[in-house]
């Protein structure tokens, strides 16, 4: 976007792909510039990734290092027969889908409403974006406190307005616990969508909107036929990005419910962490991880495709 604006400003048309390489372009320069980052990434990303694929075929338990053995597909066999794995799969899907779709919807509504405000209030938008940078562990503890069965303000409030009769054990009932973690994440992530969608709204040419108004389009029609098509790209990209982020999400769930009660809120990242660092079964955890890497890879390809389409 910045590129488009800049291009307009400078009235220069440039096309990066057809650009003539300059004399100074040499693989050597590229190597010098890229080497530090790539070396570091090899050490902390690529090597561990390859090692994880190898570990997936091993039985490696941290507490019994002498029993390490190559077991080929045994880990995967156990995994697919393990009911918990499928529970986690389902949880991750429900959690991710609900969180992203509700945050997206809320973000869309709020961004549009704030866009209607006079310009001088724009500065206040910063305040409603703050939840986005609050550390996950703080969000987790804060919502654990607000959802507490004994002193939680949410129970108190709901009872006060007669929605519930008795205090609910929010974090100790399977479906309520899932709802609780979803609410905490929506609070945390809606600002991201507000931010992205606001940027998208700003890029809609004013004259198109005005033309729609002059032709007598209702607000809904304007939204449906002007705003939404312009926003489509940004909505798809930010949703995909957040789907990926949520599958990997760890701190809020870990602190709020620890994946409980009885695995009802255990999602992929929490599950892998627990197998690896609470049960110490590194081989099995890697096998579960590998499956998720493939699932995420599919999503990443969709993400990259939609990025390229947008440009």
């Amino acid at each position: 976007m910045a590129k488009k604006i800049l291009a307009k400003l400078l009235k220069i048309k440039f096309n990066k792909e057809n650009r003539e390489p300059s004399v100074h372009d040499s693989p050597k320069t590229a190597a010098i510039l890229l080497a530090p980052a790539l070396l570091l990434m090899t050490f902390i990303i690529f090597y561990p990734l390859i090692r994880a694929f190898i570990l997936a075929f091993y039985n490696l338990n941290l507490t019994q290092p002498n029993n390490t053995a190559f077991v080929f597909l045994e880990n995967f066999r156990i995994m697919f027969r393990d009911e918990t794995f499928w529970v986690v799969f389902k949880n991750t899907f429900i959690f991710t889908f609900t969180t992203v779709s509700i945050s997206l919807l809320l973000g869309l509504i709020i961004a549009i409403v704030f866009d209607q405000l006079p310009k001088k209030y724009a500065g206040y938008r910063g305040i409603i974006l703050v939840p986005w940078v609050i550390p996950g562990i703080v969000v987790g503890y804060l919502f654990m406190y607000m959802f507490d069965v004994e002193v939680g303000i949410i129970n108190f409030f709901l009872q006060k307005i007669h929605i519930i009769e008795n205090y609910l054990p929010w974090l100790m009932r399977d479906k309520l616990a899932m709802a609780s973690i979803i609410i905490a994440h929506i609070w945390n992530q809606t600002p991201f969508f507000i931010l992205m969608i606001t940027a998208g709204l700003k890029a809609i040419p004013r004259d198109v909107q005005e033309a729609a108004y002059v032709e007598g389009a209702s607000r809904w029609q304007e939204f449906r036929h002007v705003t939404l098509p312009f926003l489509k790209g940004i909505l798809v990209i930010s949703s995909l990005l957040m789907v990926i982020r949520n599958i990997n999400n760890f701190p809020i769930i870990f602190t709020m419910t620890g994946g409980g009660p009885a695995n009802a809120t255990t999602t992929a990242a929490v599950y892998i962490y627990k197998i690896a660092f609470e049960q110490y079964q590194l081989g099995y955890a890697s096998a579960v991880g590998v499956i998720w890497v493939f699932a995420l890879l599919a999503l990443s390809i969709a993400y990259i495709k939609s990025l390229q389409k947008d440009f």
Partner: peptide, 21 residues
């Protein structure tokens, strides 16, 4: 593309070999 994709990896999976390393 490789750099972009690495942002998508579940860090918890990388953590296991990283811990051993």
């Amino acid at each position: 593309i490789g750099v972009l994709v690495t942002q998508m990896f579940p860090l918890v999976v990388l953590l296991i070999p990283l811990y051993l390393l």
